[in-house]
């Protein structure tokens, strides 16, 4: 069981009276890229946002069931949200770099968790370089780290948004349609980047793009109207879908 990163047990979620998730049971393996597909409004974002409890912000949300991350129940009253979010990073559909310099963006997470303890400039430089190198952005930005991050191209912004999570040493990265705001070239670049993170991080990626799910993930989850329909290795799902509705969706018969 050691290799399960995220596990949900009979997880239900309501927005007020509207039930958005029904009895979700799934186990996501550590170090793999798991893509999540399904028509708009089927609850993909909702499920993703439950995994770092960012959904708690909405006080009309109610849940039952469990979510375990690395064998720890995240709804346990002893859980400190700050620690949870450090472990479970999130990348959004629209790149959302903070209106700070590139360097400050990378150091933001590091600093808020340092508790006032100042790192030396050397340590900080090292963090910035390492993170930017990991997302293949170092060469492009090393001479303009002080520039505003919001002036980068969307592709670069999205890479930066991934990079700024890394100094926190997360185990799980949640990505909600990380490429849907990008052009095909940017999509390809970010996809490649995500692929290089495989192994070191457990990645759950929502996507609307079948081709992307197919070429850039190990396992695939298909959701429909708040229910988990199918969870299989990507190659299996796209060749021999277990469920008739999965087949219909993949072939583009609805969506």
């Amino acid at each position: 069981m050691k290799d399960i990163a995220v596990q949900t047990k009979n997880f239900n979620l309501w927005y007020g009276d509207f039930q958005a998730l029904f009895d979700i049971n799934l186990s996501i393996k550590q170090g793999l890229i798991t893509s999540m597909i399904g028509p708009s409004g089927c609850g993909k974002s909702t499920l993703l946002r439950s995994m770092n409890r960012i959904i708690d912000r909405l006080d009309y949300v109610r849940t039952t069931g469990e979510i375990h991350i690395l064998q720890h129940d995240i709804f346990d009253p002893k859980v400190e949200l700050v620690q949870l979010r450090k472990q479970v990073g999130m990348v959004f559909q629209r790149p959302n770099p903070l209106p700070l310099s590139i360097r400050e963006n990378i150091l933001f997470g590091h600093r808020i968790h340092a508790g006032g303890k100042k790192s030396t400039k050397n340590e900080e430089d090292e963090i910035v370089e390492k993170s930017l190198k990991t997302v293949l952005l170092w060469e492009k930005t090393k001479d303009r780290l002080g520039n505003s991050a919001t002036n980068l191209s969307l592709e670069e912004q999205q890479k930066l948004c991934i990079a700024r999570l890394l100094p926190l040493k997360p185990t799980v990265l949640l990505m909600d349609e990380p490429c849907s705001a990008l052009d095909p070239k940017g999509t390809e670049a970010v996809e490649e980047l995500i692929w290089t993170l495989r192994g070191e991080y457990t990645i759950i990626m929502v996507t609307h793009n079948m081709a992307q799910a197919r070429r850039a993930s190990d396992e695939c989850i298909f959701m429909l109207m708040g229910e988990l329909m199918e969870h299989s290795p990507t190659t299996d799902m796209f060749v021999t879908p277990k469920h008739e509705k999965t087949a219909a969706y993949i072939e583009g018969r609805y969506g």
């Binding site: 770092n52 960012i54 912000r57 949200l81 700050v82 620690q83 949870l84 979010r85 450090k86 990073g89 999130m90 959004f92 959302n96 770099p97 903070l98 209106p99 933001f108 997470g109 808020i112 968790h113 948004c161 700024r164 999570l165 926190l168």
Partner: peptide
């Protein structure tokens, strides 16, 4: 911006 911060554990 707020979401970005919260998601880094701010």
């Amino acid at each position: 911006f707020r979401e970005a911060c919260w998601n880094m554990g701010a």
